[in-house]
């Protein structure tokens, strides 16, 4: 790891001011992507700005029907939260399945979203549940937040503050983890609200995406026969040493079917 200067921010505006004062700054949340990347010298910030001391940035609250999760909430905290379990147990299950225990004690929801790893779990939750990302300056809907592999619509100095999850009628998250890394080879968040099906898929392509053809078919008729003829084109999916694009396309459909079964029973 190259040398850098370290700064602690005690509020959001100080963090942004610090960020804009340096040449190659970087915020640090849980650090479980940033530190390994810095060790490999793939990232070499001149200045690292710590967000951990900003008060209440990890709070989990319920405001009416909206679950609000602070960006610095760790995966372990989200998984164990009775508010999360009560509002959307699929979200708690998803958090419980990220990485391993030690990683879940440090990694954060805000860090995961800002990083937008193509195989991360949280992007599927945010997109599938139709969440809103509240930053230090605006609110971004999930549908416009994720741009491309490791890219979001966040400005370089913008900080995620909270993620707002609306109430959905039903939700299930199904993941086919890579057995070694526990990252999603394919992860599917399937939700239903007032009959409308919404499906977000992570791990399969360069960035999380919605499976529009499946959503349409399941909104019209929430049953397995309704999606019998629907397929996901493999052309745009990832192929690597772990799985071919065709295999990932197949896994997507299998997991969607399991999700339909889970929500129908």
């Amino acid at each position: 790891m190259y040398q850098f200067n370290f700064h602690k921010a005690d509020n959001l505006s100080t963090a942004v001011e610090l960020f804009n004062a340096f040449d190659e700054p970087m915020y640090i949340a849980g650090g479980h992507t940033l530190i390994p990347t810095m060790k490999q010298r793939l990232s070499a910030p001149s200045d690292v700005i710590d967000l951990a001391k900003i008060p209440d940035l990890d709070a989990i609250t319920l405001a009416g029907d909206t679950l609000q999760i602070g960006a610095m909430a760790t995966h372990a905290k989200v998984a164990a939260s009775s508010l999360v379990q009560g509002h959307c147990s699929a979200l708690a299950t998803l958090a419980e399945g990220i990485g391993d225990r030690q990683v879940r004690h440090r990694g954060t929801i805000g860090g995961s979203l800002a990083n937008n790893d193509p195989a991360a779990d949280y992007p599927a939750a945010v997109l599938g549940l139709g969440a809103q990302i509240v930053t230090d300056r605006r609110t971004i809907t999930a549908d416009t937040f994720f741009k491309a592999m490791f890219e979001t619509t966040l400005e370089p100095d913008e900080i995620i503050q909270t993620i707002h999850f609306p109430q959905v009628d039903q939700a299930v998250y199904l993941k086919f983890p890579n057995p070694a890394s526990r990252y999603a080879m394919v992860g599917v968040m399937l939700t239903r609200t007032a009959g409308e099906a919404r499906i977000a898929i992570t791990g399969a392509a360069a960035s999380v995406f919605r499976a529009a053809a499946f959503e349409e078919a399941l909104t019209a008729d929430f049953s397995l026969p309704a999606i019998d003829a629907v397929t996901l084109p493999a052309e745009t999916l990832n192929a690597d040493m772990h799985a071919s694009a065709e295999y990932r396309a197949h896994l997507c459909k299998v997991l969607i079917k399991r999700g339909v079964n889970a929500l129908s029973s």
Binding site: F6, I35, V48, R101, Q102, H105, R106
Partner: peptide, 9 residues
């Protein structure tokens, strides 16, 4: 909490 000390500054 159990954490991996190689990944904590």
């Amino acid at each position: 909490d159990a954490v991996k000390a190689c990944t904590v500054l």
